[in-house]
Design a protein around this nucleic acid. Sequence first.
DNA 1: CATTTTAGTTCAGTGTACTGAAATATCGAG
DNA 2: CTCGATATTTCAGTACACTGAACTAAAATG
Lengths: 149, 149
Amino acid sequence: MDGRDFGRELSTAVVAFHEAVGARLGVTAVDQRALALIAGKGPLSAGELAKEINLTPGAVTGVADRLERAGLVRREPDPGDRRRVVLSAVPGAFGQVFAGLGAAMGELTARYSPQEQQVIADWVVRTVDVLKEQTRLLSEIGKNAPDRT
Amino acid sequence: MDGRDFGRELSTAVVAFHEAVGARLGVTAVDQRALALIAGKGPLSAGELAKEINLTPGAVTGVADRLERAGLVRREPDPGDRRRVVLSAVPGAFGQVFAGLGAAMGELTARYSPQEQQVIADWVVRTVDVLKEQTRLLSEIGKNAPDRT
DNA sequence: CATTTTAGTTCAGTGTACTGAAATATCGAG
DNA sequence: CTCGATATTTCAGTACACTGAACTAAAATG
């Protein structure tokens, strides 16, 4: 098993898991990426989110609707500018869905020695960087339409 | 960084990458899971694939159409039973899309010692198992509709 | 052979997420 | 206080994948 196959199996399993989560909660893959952004970068306004995920404002309303209905984000008017709507992740809600996974992963990780955990953490961090870079490349090249007949 | 966060960042990056690939090739997330199945389990008939990914035969025709158009699978009549259509992964085609990723991952993995690679491989395998198990759990529970008002 | 069963495609209908434009509400400048 | 600019929502129209049923072709059964 080399680096390639690592990725293949793992990424298939990850995608399948996300699909299951999405089906369970009634949110799309895009919604989940939006949630990850909100959770990661802190509260975002609808407009900021629209730019980040490259969607029209109208579509973002839909994203926010679904995430709010699933109990994953809160939608609050910005006290400083009441035109704005600030989306923030509901603390713990994300974790609640991923509770089973989080627990299982914690348990799994605990079975490795601290040095081993260090190696794994290092690999994951670097893998994430690689994925981000490759995603960026794909998106840029992807601006030429895929060749169809 | 503990086991939970491993998963979060990594899985977000994986999903984003898959979305980019899908957009580039004009295939859906489901199509990609189908491709992974075909590549992993060897050639499958349309009917077998339908059972595996829980889709109607009609939908599978669409999956096969898109994968074939993207040059990722071949569609050939089964010589032993000419009603059947066998879907097989086009060798290298998958790799061509994932070439950049594969190369980068190979390079990344090579930077670890054999023992470290062993640890990583072990962790990945177990993580895949955990993901599959959690996906299964979600899908089963998910048969109760998500609670909506 | 005739008949039934099985495999896959085609097609009409449905659901859903996206775009683009109009509507609503609030801010900031003069 | 008025007016133009900005943020979000609403809404009609569009695109697309899925279901279920009808259809075509080939195999198995008697």
